[in-house]
Design a protein around this nucleic acid. Structure first.
Lengths: 346, 346
DNA sequence: GGAGTGATTGTGAGCGTTCACAGTCGGGGC
DNA sequence: GCCCCGACTGTGAACGCTCACAATCACTCC
């Protein structure tokens, strides 16, 4: 097993000589070709083992034109959402026999995404999935390297309102509008007169979708639509929004665009002596693992990031292997998670 | 610019013909070779642009034996620690002109890590960094594919106590023992008689290191060492530990091995009417972005995951390019973050 | 008994790049 | 005017694999 005696790593020809066959036969064994006598096969396998041979996928990719590697472009994989999505992507890709090459952008502008895609194209990836939660990233998909199959994940906001923002590539996303609706309607059903909103950054499609869902639910119920407070996803911005809200008299229900900001809101309320859910009800978005242990445990909207990543890969691979070029559009529904941060109006 | 008229993507020879030079000259232009007449260079560049030529890095890698791709093996990149580390790695690698190919393991056993490394070796990565926070992962580094430079990140527990667990590869890690000490000593300095501990899973080196630091600090101060409560990093396990602790009379200080579990502990204390920090002081570990907004804001030990990732790449690249084989050992110190979850004993 | 069939194996070309080695050209030194 | 040298450019052979094709062999079928 694995001898490293020779200086240079053994190649197929070495194995062939050792086993007394041609390089082609070795290749056949490696690729599971059926027409190889089983005795020959074992001989080759033994030679491989003896020499510690390892196939050179680079050479293979050169001739087959397939690297079995998929590129992933994402933004700040430190955030729970992108991280989970990329994780789902990676798992699904590997299960399908593909490698994954990740490029994490620090700032997302059109040029950045294009560069990343060029980068991946040079490297010879078979296709790419772009986690493009921001408008600018979704737009960058317009100038995709020619001939590169790609799918955008989170690159649209779902629902009826969501026009496919992303050029002419396939899209997989969670229905943000439906999520915003779910949260808002839940609060209205508890008897709240209206619902305030702490939104995400305006250039994020997800923020836009949640806001749209919230607004739609309010308007359909014929309620007043308060001016949303703008956050940036961080707990800090939620905290600041929470301080503002705590000082307003008529606030009884708040829909916060993500759980991290909701944590900040909760903290601000606690500091200001506003009791949740007795005085104000709060709903978050994402269902991060921590949210069940906030004080109080957070009622929230769950996004199945993992499923999104998986579907992204499925769509991409279907495009790759099926060869069919039609752009697909797959919307994953969010779900409502009831916990202790909401209650009927007193 | 980018014409896709030809069916097959243009290759170097096409550019050469278009520019009226040899393929070698094109290659020289691409690689920034100095001895090319500037007029020739522009001619080549124009041809490249006209044809939309894109260099084939696979063919290049075949002959140079360098892919400029680094492999990363990690475990559950959904967790904040690994995610941040991988992020740091990716950024640093890209800055140094390398790609990154990530393999995220769902379960870490020796075979899994070995497979991942084999996988990467076949793919032709120039080196690998293994985020190996678990004993089993660190052990797997023993059977590294021959000739593959690698560095383990979080593969040791740092400090004096930490023997290099990871075979004979370089190691970069945060000094967990020092972190455990920092937390414990802080609590003792506030006048607490002793400090309880909610630990991470025992097969994680980080958990072991934190526990060792805690124990050492206690013993050095001549204090009783309570039996640690075992958690699994999840908020839920922290919650359960918290419930147990809430029922014990003599608990005034708890060092929890990570922030997520600390959140669970906090939650359990709140439910049981135990006030933090008035009755019990709590210290966490990691300094996740949320911890400043817990109730109360969590005093914790900060790990600079980003720096660990960066250093990991630095060490690896030094090994790759410098060619020197000596295993390095780099320990990043943790830092203490004071917030509101700790107070002097009443 | 010769052709036909299918299983098994071998041969040589070629994927798109870089490397090593030659050339060619013009100018400075003698 | 010749040689040498440096700047610039071209030629052919790898790199390690798969593909297309051909060859061999043992049978079966009529």
């Amino acid at each position: 097993m694995r001898s490293t005696l020779g200086r240079r790593p053994p190649v197929m020809a070495d194995v062939a000589k050792e086993a007394g066959v041609s390089h082609q036969t070795v290749s056949r064994v490696l690729n599971g070709h059926p027409n190889v006598r089983s005795e020959t096969r074992t001989r080759v396998l033994q030679a491989i083992d003896k020499l510690g041979y390892r196939r050179n996928l680079v050479a293979r990719a050169l001739v087959t034109k397939h690297s079995r590697t998929l590129g992933v472009v994402s933004f700040d994989t430190t955030l729970y959402g992108p991280a989970s999505t990329v994780y789902g992507i990676e798992q699904a890709a590997r299960a399908a026999g593909y490698f994954v090459s990740v490029v994490s952008l620090t700032s997302i502008d059109r040029a950045g995404v294009r560069d990343a895609l060029d980068y991946l194209a040079e490297q010879g990836v078979d296709g790419a999935v772009v986690v493009a939660p921001q408008r600018s990233a979704a737009e960058a998909l317009a100038d995709l390297p020619p001939g590169m199959p790609a799918v955008a994940v989170e690159g649209a906001i779902g629902g009826e309102a969501g026009g496919g923002q992303a050029g002419d590539v396939s899209v997989v996303c969670v229905d943000q509008v439906a999520g915003g609706r779910l949260a808002t309607e839940h609060l209205l059903s508890l008897g709240h007169e209206t619902v305030w909103h702490v939104s995400g950054p305006s250039d994020w499609l997800e923020a836009e979708g949640r806001l749209a869902g919230w607004r739609a639910a309010l308007e359909e119920a014929g309620r007043e639509v308060p001016r949303p407070l703008a956050g940036d996803w961080s707990p800090r911005s939620g905290y600041e929004a929470g301080r503002s809200l705590a000082h307003m008299r008529n606030v009884t229900a708040v829909f916060v665009a993500n759980d991290q900001m909701a944590l900040g809101v909760l903290r601000a309320f606690t500091e200001q002596g506003v009791r949740v859910p007795e005085q104000v009800s709060v709903v978050g978005f994402d269902d991060v693992p921590e949210s069940a242990y906030f004080s109080p445990p957070l009622t929230t909207i769950r996004q199945d990031f993992d499923a999104v990543g998986r579907h992204g890969i499925e769509v991409l691979i279907r495009q790759l292997e099926g060869g069919h070029d039609g752009r697909e559009r797959l919307v994953v529904p969010p779900s409502f998670v009831a916990r202790a941060s909401t209650a009927p109006v007193a």
